[in-house]
Design a protein around this nucleic acid. Structure first.
Lengths: 309, 309
DNA sequence: TGATTTCCATATATAATTTATATGAAAGAT
DNA sequence: ATCTTTCATATAAATTATATATGGAAATCA
């Protein structure tokens, strides 16, 4: 390409920072390999042959693609380009730090696409292993075998969800043992063994074994079942955003179970994109904690409105 | 790519016909250059990193393009691929060997596209020089300066075109001197100096200087002017295919000027496509001469019908 | 016309790179 | 516990690329 642009071996070699003889030899060798004469050697400089002209275009395209390859690699190395697929465990998307993280991350790295998807913890671990997603916010513990890197993200408070008009609903704050005789709406243990066990052992510590009522298909779907009057439930605080048909939320005392959340990802690799995402996420969690604590310190319960608008 | 496909340096090296250590080094160097870890080194083999997976796709595309480049070069070297732009001098496209050549060439080299265009000899020479066309069939002589390669193709007979009902039209064969008093319709000398001069000197040899009538803008457009009764003309025999409005064609004796045709192309290059085209063209000329001579030996004139169908 | 300049080609020596051989270390398999 | 597999490293050998020196052909200039 340099020879074609300069019309001269001598000047092209100069431009390339090399001497003329090796350039001549390179071109000669290239011509031999291709079986084609690329340049007409004139007495004053050289000129592309017709065939050389055709191949020059293709060579330009080829070189452009190579540079694109390098730029992609560089972008990936710096975490500036590409996409990131994030899996969220049940009800996690209701946490306010999630949209905040997405917004901030998109501002900071506009050339990175974020895909969000929601599932339960075991399915997310499988998806990580299968490379269907790149990172997940899960409810620990995660199955050991998968070789995943897990690090704690935050502990979410839990609150009690009561059906509207329930006798206990007059108390803004409850103690766990007050629920000893109520039927518990709870999700299947497989969908979040850690959280499930945390609820059960908190009850045991409070001196009772919960009466199991209707099983909910997901964590978030306990709320409508409570609203339907089928029982009570202990749910992550972020679920208070759901006001399906009439539910009241009530904070628990010190014996409240805690809903742990953790970041899970495949190990053994340094993916700058993921490091950036995790930094953003952790920063958002910090910021939200600092600002939210002041927002709702003594009134975690709220009357549920109709889901009209 | 080989490492990624084999999941192992050892097996990849085997497949590539080299040893394992240099391959490991190559990959290591590539990773350093890109600033990216491409493979996770496991205890048993290696595995692409997420970044490596992205780059693998691009690398495949890049390699594919490179192979396409090589295949293009090879195709050009063998004259199997590409396109060829053919310029035709005035009225040449009426020669039956032209469509025959195109047909045969397309059969023999189906991956080559032929573009035909028609112009006058000087313009064709300029187009050749400007690389707007690759080869031309011209009416010699061609201007010297252009550095074009010219080789004779064939000599076309000329015939006399008379308006329908002209007194001389009763003779199937004419002699040139019979036209001494007729106004000659002729194209401007610039459009084909060789042919123009050939006509004039044939007249001088026959003992007269032709009376110049209306000038035709191109060689082929002498015919309608003759048909309109503005004069007579000496035209290449292939023009007898034009029956615009009523013209009769009459063969000339030994003193007939001859319309030379030649192949012109840029020199200094070996373009297999062009060699193939020229071979085909010459073969077609030979075949046509052998078969056409027997077709119309004694009756070169033909009554012009209306250009209706 | 002859001298000079320009520019590509060739030859040879040197430097750089690539490749192979030998060997070590880590982890799974027997 | 030993053996096998597999990647990494070190070093030597071969190959390849590069630079220097020089020649020849044609255009430019005196």
């Amino acid at each position: 390409m340099a020879v074609a642009e300069n019309g001269s071996f001598t000047r092209a070699a100069e431009q390339l920072g090399m001497e003329q003889p090796p350039l001549s030899q390179q071109i000669k060798q290239l011509e031999n390999e291709l079986g084609v004469l690329l340049f007409q050697r004139l007495t004053r400089g050289v000129r592309l042959t017709d065939i050389g002209l055709v191949l020059l275009d293709q060579a330009r395209a080829l070189l452009g693609m190579q540079q694109q390859f390098l730029s992609t690699a560089q972008g990936l190395a710096r975490g500036e380009k590409g996409h990131i697929r994030v899996g969220l465990a049940g009800a996690v998307s209701l946490l306010p730090m999630i949209p905040l993280t997405v917004r901030r991350f998109r501002e900071a790295w506009p050339d990175v696409t974020i895909y969000l998807e929601e599932s339960n913890t075991p399915a997310l671990c499988k998806a990580l292993h299968d490379r269907a997603i790149d990172i997940a916010i899960v409810r620990p513990p995660v199955p050991d075998g998968a070789g995943l890197l897990v690090s704690p993200l935050l502990e979410e408070e839990t609150v009690v969800a009561l059906p509207k008009g329930h006798p206990l609903a007059i108390h803004p704050n409850l103690e766990l043992e007050m629920l000893a005789d109520e039927p518990f709406i709870i999700f299947p243990r497989e969908l979040g063994p850690g959280f499930h066990d945390a609820i059960l052992s908190a009850c045991h510590n409070a001196g009772f074994t919960p009466r199991m009522g209707q099983q909910a298909p997901q964590i978030a779907s306990t709320v409508p079942l409570v609203a339907a009057g089928l029982g009570v439930s202990v749910v992550p605080r972020s679920l208070h955003q759901i006001h399906s048909g009439g539910v009241t939320y009530h904070s628990l005392g010190a014996k409240a179970p805690r809903a742990e959340l953790a970041i899970a990802m495949r190990g053994g690799q340094h993916v700058p994109l993921l490091s950036n995402f995790i930094s953003t996420l952790r920063a958002c969690c910090r910021d939200m904690r600092d600002s939210t604590v002041t927002l709702t310190p003594g009134l975690p319960d709220m009357e549920a409105g109709q889901a009209g608008a």
